[in-house]
Design a protein around this nucleic acid. Structure first.
Lengths: 214, 214
DNA sequence: AATAATTTTAATCATTTGATTAAATAAGTT
DNA sequence: AACTTATTTAATCAAATGATTAAAATTATT
């Protein structure tokens, strides 16, 4: 028998297994995923998985690396764009991320889980180089802005946390939020679409706060 | 042989196993935790774990239930307090949560993971009743405030998401944040202490935004 | 068509892992 | 002390699971 939907000559089986693995891994995590789950999900035999990828761990690493790249490298272009303002970058970045997260809602949990399990592994094994964290041009714009407006004196790491928190956390908490509030996936996604416009406004509001008050 | 540090007559062994289980489960999650890990962590024999708790799953459920209670029920008193303003409640709640999270930094990932794995399980198996979500008095205050100040027209669920996001996410992302920024646990905790004061201010700023712009 | 190379499968292995059992030790009662 | 109960352990089981192997089926090449 041949694979169900053989689209292309070579790409088919290997790619189908990888897609199945991606679905199962991102849904259940590494430890809870059985190689047999991937076999069943892909429609192929168990041995095929090992034939193509040698081992569960190797397959996982491939999936993980692709995710990390999606997660991290996609922002490089935006962040280094010389022709957009800080506020524009924020809008584009957040909009971009929310789009991606609507497509892959359990990506954050997946990535964070594995980072949690072994924070050093990504750096060592998957070769995430330190250059990523520089955020060159956006950081420069940030400091300019911080100097111009008498920004509150709190650590800029707070702002990074805030942006990431407001953007990503709703997806992480989605099952709980939906369970508690009763809203369904469609309604949830509408809220996320709203946040594309709202979060940049909120971030600006946060940046302008901090002068007054306790 | 007897258990290492027998503090009290009855409490000792069972409690020691539970504490060990809590540590291992919250660190590695259910699937990745071996009963043998708990045995080793507790210093007791493998069979003891099953002697006291029948099965891995039953032990897990006990741990989980306790965590959920810590996570949820602790806020009921604060939320229903007739003598505090909305802003005060926010401050108290956030401060309370951050204290708890500094003590148990990997609690959010643990809970969210298991909720993700089976959102219905907590409701069914652990009997989380719907009454929790009411947040009676705080919600009343919220609506009053929303009516008084011409609050922005966005869904109040956004505000709930924002409060929870800003408070909890930094702990979830902590390993990644620390890995990327190079700050250590102590420095991270100082930032979290700062957020006790900052988040309520930011929330207020967010509430007051949304009129102008865009 | 015949042969070689690739792809796929069924059957099987060796470990791991959750759980049980029966025996040993300790503690409490009479 | 004698007996009963509670606690702890070593040894072992059965199922699950990651991985391998050898053969069958399919495709490509001559």
């Amino acid at each position: 028998m041949k694979a169900k939907e053989t689209i292309e000559k070579n790409q088919s089986t290997e790619e189908l297994i990888k897609n199945a693995a991606r679905r199962v891994f991102t849904k259940k995590g590494y430890a809870a995923t059985r190689t047999r789950d991937i076999a069943e999900e892909s429609g192929f035999n168990l041995a095929l998985i090992n034939y193509y990828f040698r081992s569960k761990e190797k397959l996982f690493d491939i999936i993980m690396l692709e995710h990390i790249q999606t997660f991290v490298y996609s922002i490089m272009g935006i962040v280094n764009d010389r022709n957009t303002t800080l506020q524009e970058k924020l809008q584009i970045l957040i909009s971009h991320y929310i789009d991606m997260l609507i497509e892959n809602p359990n990506l954050p949990m997946f990535v964070l889980n594995e980072v949690n399990a072994d924070p050093q592994k990504l750096v060592d094994k998957l070769g995430i180089d330190k250059s990523i964290q520089e955020m060159p041009y956006m950081l420069i714009q940030w400091k300019e802005m911080a100097a111009k407006t008498k920004m509150p004196a709190f650590n800029p790491v707070h702002m990074l946390m805030n942006i990431v928190s407001l953007t990503i956390f709703p997806f992480i908490g989605s099952p709980m939020i939906r369970n508690r509030t009763g809203i369904d996936v469609a309604a949830f996604n509408i809220l996320m679409e709203e946040r594309k416009k709202l979060i940049p406004i909120w971030i600006k509001a946060i940046m302008m706060s901090g002068h007054a008050e306790e």
